[in-house]
Nucleic acid binder design. Sequence first.
DNA 1: TTTTATATTTAGGCAAGACTAAAAAAATAT
DNA 2: ATATTTTTTTAGTCTTGCCTAAATATAAAA
Lengths: 218, 218
Amino acid sequence: MFTLAEENYLKAIFHLEHDSAGEVSTNAIAESMDTRPSSVTDMIQKLAEKKLLTYKRYKGVKLTKEGIKVAANVIRKHRLWEVFLVEKLNFHWDEVHEIAEQLEHIQSEELITRLDKFLGSPDFDPHGDPIPDKHGVLKRTEKRLLSEIEKNQQGVCVGVKESSAEFLQYLDKKKISIGTKISVLGKEFFDGSMIIQVGADQFFISKMVAENLFVQTL
Amino acid sequence: MFTLAEENYLKAIFHLEHDSAGEVSTNAIAESMDTRPSSVTDMIQKLAEKKLLTYKRYKGVKLTKEGIKVAANVIRKHRLWEVFLVEKLNFHWDEVHEIAEQLEHIQSEELITRLDKFLGSPDFDPHGDPIPDKHGVLKRTEKRLLSEIEKNQQGVCVGVKESSAEFLQYLDKKKISIGTKISVLGKEFFDGSMIIQVGADQFFISKMVAENLFVQTL
DNA sequence: TTTTATATTTAGGCAAGACTAAAAAAATAT
DNA sequence: ATATTTTTTTAGTCTTGCCTAAATATAAAA
């Protein structure tokens, strides 16, 4: 149906649209895909012809209904495979991204239907990201960034914003994973750092960490 | 490591080497891959430079140790994924080939190690074909073609030579699958057809069928 | 507003992997 | 042994998806 490159562009644009509202710029796509702006221009012209996004020269792009559907489906496959890798093959959550990047391009409706069922139709992937349903609809949640939580409040970790292996390994070292209860004991206003409690341990985390952890307040 | 196209050529050549001894011809490769001889020449020259096969102009090719290893690994992945699809996702044995053709190219040693363990380190795929181990070694079996079995002997179906969906669906209709006991009641010499018994049913099968079913005699 | 900087697009090329058409080698037939 | 057929290779093209360099549009600064 679509080439690997096309699917990757649609996925990247989908993510960029969710991070920041409005049109997505050529440069932003190039940066997120580690490619050159000129290559991006080539591809978005091709995708515009296929009606997967709307494009006006110098004005950035926006996915069409169809483009959103295709992108969401790739993301659905990516996240379902991540669940498979973690739940069934016992991979750790910091090891699954690259493999899922490959598996997400396997073409078979039936495969995904059955995989979803085999996994018990999960709503979230191992990093707490929601899995779109067949129609591309995401389950919305009440999640907030840990950095938005006030002193003396507490929350349960429900996901990560960044999911680089480095960050996930840091979280492991601190014994933080999906479902972990976190209490905010103190907050420095000048640099956004925090003192938090996880289990019996109390420790310092930087603003960068607090801004990449999603929690649900209790 | 290797491109999708390279892996597919190596796999095709590996199979051709096993079907008929000696060098594999350009035309044979082209036919088995549904491509043009000139394309094959291009690719085998490239693979020869990479030392995956030996090639002399007009003389055909032969895989090197390294080429065999790479091909066997692709086949190992293909067959393991087929087991997964049938055993875990409840696909039928005639539905899994195309999907496994895609999955076989996923690059991750660790993935295959874990998948193999998850599946209980199977020795055979759903069609009865042996799964190479990590080193490319196939478990040898005593299987013979049903067509070689004499009247009044019996055997257990252990695999199929052809695994087209059409043939597998024919076998289903006749209630023949891996593990099914088959008794040869009669054999026509002039056309190679047979009368066989499967469970309580007795019926006629053509030479073509008998030549594509592997059995182990009892 | 004019200049400067930044973002984007165009033009032209490259590599992979396919193709067709034509040339050359090998195999087969006379 | 020569002629014919078949197989294989070479030469030249095409498409996809990327690149660099140069041109152009937009945005920011003076």
